[in-house]
């Protein structure tokens, strides 16, 4: 049940990414090109996603536990530290340069685009490098 539900939720997410245009790196880059070929579409993606999630989380997180697990796995850290800021700054630079964020580019594999697979494998290796370094500390 856990797996079927996750598959169905993944389908909804992937449909949202495809319909919204987040799946297209060129569209993402144009969202940031306010001084050039600006395409404000992604502001509508964020607005729609945030509106639903804000209201939905309020209802859901009031319950004692999720339906398919014993507890909610919600991050508890509230510390604004250097890795958070440095990592986010680095992510933004690469996101602007490529137009590829993990959520947008993973579904693009389903379009059969070789570039999407190249991006996702590279992103996974990048995540793996950070995990290795952090595990050694």
């Amino acid at each position: 049940m856990t797996i079927i539900a996750a598959l169905a939720i993944g389908l909804i997410f992937g449909t949202g990414i495809a319909v919204s245009g987040m799946i297209n790196p060129a569209k993402v880059i144009n969202f940031f090109d306010i001084a050039g070929t600006w395409d404000p579409s992604l502001a509508f993606v964020m607005a729609g996603a945030l509106a639903v999630t804000m209201v939905g989380y309020r209802v859901v997180l009031r319950r004692p536990a999720p339906m398919l697990d014993r507890e909610f796995h919600v991050p508890t850290s509230r510390q604004i530290d250097l890795p958070l800021i440095l990592g986010s700054a680095i992510f933004g630079i690469a996101w602007g340069a490529t137009g590829a964020c993990p959520g947008g580019i993973i579904p693009a594999i389903g379009l059969g685009e070789p570039a999407a697979l190249v991006f996702v494998v590279s992103i996974a290796i990048g995540i793996g490098i950070v995990r290795l370094v952090q595990a050694r500390r």
């Binding site: 800021i85 700054a89 690469a94 996101w95 490529t98 993990p102 947008g104 494998v121």
Partner: peptide, 16 residues
């Protein structure tokens, strides 16, 4: 670009 996206997102504990 993909490598740097992954490094930044992992270091910053999340993406978009």
């Amino acid at each position: 670009g993909g490598l740097v996206v992954g490094i930044g997102a992992a270091l910053g504990s999340g993406c978009t």
